[in-house]
């Protein structure tokens, strides 16, 4: 909980300072950036499948926060809905932001189990996207986040091919690869990634793996943890609890 308090304190400093001093958030960010030491953090995220209600607030907030095109095709984070029927067939869809499709399409008596799976960039420890980028425009920061240098990416899309999770897309405006950054601009200001911030059920738990006591620490202690496609040896830093074997 120390971290929480620290964040609270930090945010208080930012906002009160911002209001009192009439400074823009950016000006404060720059001051804070000097104090931000990338080597002191290593970020990861936990996702509790049993808590996700599939409301899609994370998808919507992510698009707003990160200027992701507001069409239902480009996502830095998205939520999949799995329905496993009694005959063991599986159907999956990405929940729509205008959640009309959420209605019950199937006769419920045929449903064996059903759940939502939030997805985002896994910020792999061994990222295949970084390995294949021909110009080194995508890289892993010291605090463990995979970023894309939008000024140097040539848009060859090799990284999009190499990502096993479909987490990347070519941004239609900038014509360079784009992906989840764990809201890096928020992290350096001591804020949470926006999907974590707005999740009404705390299905997403964000934390610093270098801090001993953190919500993520507790999450990984109290749950059996699984990652997506472990056989590919990418070492994801997005940890799932209660993940179903059908999910890939």
């Amino acid at each position: 909980m120390e971290r929480r308090d620290f964040l609270k304190h930090l945010c208080w400093v930012i906002t009160s300072g911002g209001i009192l001093g009439g400074l823009s958030a950016d000006a404060w960010a720059k001051m804070l950036n000097k104090d931000y030491d990338t080597t002191k953090h290593y970020y990861g995220m936990g996702i509790d499948i049993d808590k996700c209600i599939g409301c899609g607030r994370c998808m919507q907030a992510c698009k707003t926060e990160n200027d992701v095109p507001a069409v239902p095709f480009y996502f830095r984070t998205w939520v999949e809905r799995y329905v496993i029927r009694t005959d063991r067939t599986v159907s999956v869809n990405t929940i729509n932001m205008e959640s009309d499709e959420l209605g019950d399409v199937l006769a419920e008596k045929d449903v064996l189990r059903s759940f939502f799976v939030p997805k985002l960039c896994n910020q792999c420890d061994h990222p295949p996207c970084v390995q294949v980028c021909p110009v080194g425009a995508t890289f892993k920061t010291d605090d463990g986040v995979i970023l894309v240098d939008s000024k140097r990416c040539i848009g060859c899309r090799y990284c999009i091919q190499a990502c096993p999770y479909g987490a990347r897309y070519l941004h239609p405006k900038t014509r360079v690869a784009d992906k989840c950054t764990f809201c890096y601009h928020r992290l350096v200001r001591g804020l949470l990634p926006v999907c974590v911030e707005v999740c009404p059920k705390q299905a997403r738990i964000f934390g610093d793996m270098k801090s001993i006591a953190s919500p993520l620490g507790r999450f990984t202690r109290m749950n059996k943890i699984h990652v997506l496609k472990p056989s590919l040896n990418t070492d994801p830093k997005v940890y799932y609890a209660n993940l179903d074997g059908e999910v890939n």
Binding site: V130, Q131, V132, C133, P134, V135, G136, A137, R152, C153, I154, G155, C156, R157, Y158, L170, R175, V176, A177
Partner: peptide
């Protein structure tokens, strides 16, 4: 290759900072 790039004008980056782990580089 050049024409399919999202940003063809940046292809010179391939020679500036080739990433040695990339097959494409």
């Amino acid at each position: 290759l050049q024409l399919h790039l999202g940003r063809p004008e940046r292809s010179y980056e391939m020679f500036m900072t080739p990433n040695l782990t990339s097959a494409m580089a």
